[in-house]
């Protein structure tokens, strides 16, 4: 546990001191500030526009950060050989990978938190009435990012190219949001094989709609009864992807 925390700590420091991280946070802050321009165009729906734009910007920022950071975490470290002086210490590869992943998530969550503070401030200034839904929407966004982070880590270990790792991760993000459409198509199609393929795809690909509470804001009568199960599912799926990453990593040679 001490090893995991030590590695997580230095990963967090490394990410936070990385200029790219500052650029991304700055970009995120600019996006939220720029949303005020859109708000002015929103007519009587200003608060809605501000809410939606801010939540989407926070999630988008986190997605971009986690993609780049996860790819760098494994790929760049192996290519730059900084990994040698860690793996030649009495540290198991599992501890190393988990610690790196935890540090990465901590860095991304920090950025999300900063942006959320700014966003919440703007909402308060515009007379928005906060409910539990707001932090819950952010929590589920963070859960989504956790899953995508573990997927990104797997792709970075699987592929030797940063571009392809990022591309695959983004593609997975799209697939995850398209799950419901895949299920619908599977129900509509008449042939058996595509039906089975669609059903398997629907269950195997993580359904990121489970974590999209920010899109369900005005849905009447929504209770969020699926949320606790979705949170557990998110953790299980992330652990599964990390297990896969660990399997790859434990077989890697340097």
């Amino acid at each position: 546990m001490k090893n995991i925390l030590s590695i997580a700590r230095y990963t967090l420091i490394e990410n936070i001191r990385n200029k790219i991280f500052y650029v991304l946070v700055f970009f995120g802050v600019i996006i939220i500030a720029a949303s005020l321009l859109l708000v002015a165009l929103g007519g009587e729906q200003q608060r809605r526009v501000l809410l939606d734009f801010g939540l989407a910007a926070i999630e988008f920022f986190a997605l971009v950060t986690v993609c780049f950071a996860a790819v760098n975490l494994a790929l760049e470290e192996m290519q730059s050989k900084t990994i040698y002086l860690v793996l030649t210490r009495p540290v198991s590869r599992a501890h190393y990978l988990i610690g790196r992943y935890a540090g990465l998530l901590a860095a991304v969550y920090s950025g999300m938190f900063l942006m959320a503070l700014l966003h919440a401030g703007l909402l308060v200034f515009n007379g928005f009435e906060f409910t539990l839904r707001y932090p819950l929407a952010l929590l589920l966004s963070a859960e989504k990012i956790t899953i995508i982070g573990s997927v990104a880590l797997f792709f970075s270990l699987f592929s030797s190219s940063a571009i392809s790792s990022i591309s695959f991760t983004v593609f997975f993000w799209v697939l995850g949001h398209f799950s419901e459409e895949i299920r619908y198509l599977g129900e509509k199609v008449t042939y058996v094989l595509p039906k089975i393929v669609a059903k398997i795809a629907y269950y195997v690909i993580p359904n990121l709609q489970y974590f999209n509470l920010r899109d369900f804001w005005d849905v009447p009568g929504i209770t969020g009864s699926w949320i606790p199960a979705a949170i557990i599912y998110g953790i299980l799926y992330s652990v599964a992807c990390m297990t896969l990453s660990l399997w790859l990593f434990s077989n890697k040679e340097f």
């Binding site: 793996l87 269950y203 199960a229 599964a240």
Partner: peptide, 30 residues
């Protein structure tokens, strides 16, 4: 270092997928 068996990977994914099939997907409707 210990080389992880692929069986753990299969187990982990099976758990996640089965949880999705029997729990989450039953409670969630788009």
């Amino acid at each position: 270092n210990y080389r992880l068996s692929w069986l753990y990977v299969v187990f982990a994914f099976s758990l996640a997928i089965l949880f999705n099939v029997f729990v989450v997907s039953k409670r969630f409707s788009n």
